[in-house]
Amino acid sequence: MNLDELKGAWAAYDDQLKSTGDIDDQVIAGMIRKRSISTVATIKKSYLYGIYFCCFYVLAFALLNIGDPFDYTRDFDQIPLNAMLGALILILVILLIARHAMKKLEVPGQSLLTYLENVIKQYRQTQKLLLWLVCTIMFSASVLFPLSFLSRKIAKSGLWWGLIDTFSLLIVIVIANVITHLLAKRKGVGERSWWSFKVIIKELEELKTMAAELKNG
């Protein structure tokens, strides 16, 4: 039996499908009112959560700067907080641009290869953004924020005790993060969410393999 004979079977299958009843109009109308569960929709939603997150913290840091609850006496004490604020604003802008760029993917009407390449580009961007976001938050919370208290602690306890006291917070944060990460890994938390690098890397590899298969003769 060869492929041309199978074409006959396929044609018969096609005829059988044509003989099935129409789908109820209300059922189709219901489908177009549902939310998408596509990758594109999931990435867009993640970007939106990131935007909300950044907005909240930008507002919080702006209020901290205005209110000065830590009673900073010197201007340079506020540099770390300002740096954190600056980084958050930058991330917010990048997220807004990235979300806008998703419009290209909203309508999958291009050829398969073009669409695949656009989605791969978006995955790579998401991966970089996520890395940038995680590093910024970790660096800000572990280094910049404690640094804002450094001069006061040095003035109070001397250089070395001032440094130890300031960075003891960093050590506590690092330990807490490691424990949280290990516990989350054990319970499989976030393995299927967009906040997991594993998911993004795996999907990216699959898409790249398909794009390579298409391009190679």
């Binding site: 594109v40 999958p108 009407g109 299927r192």
Partner: peptide, 14 residues
């Protein structure tokens, strides 16, 4: 085009 793009690229079974 739309159906194949959806099935291959952006539909996540999980």
């Amino acid at each position: 085009r739309v159906a194949l793009n959806t099935a291959i690229t952006i539909f996540r079974k999980e």
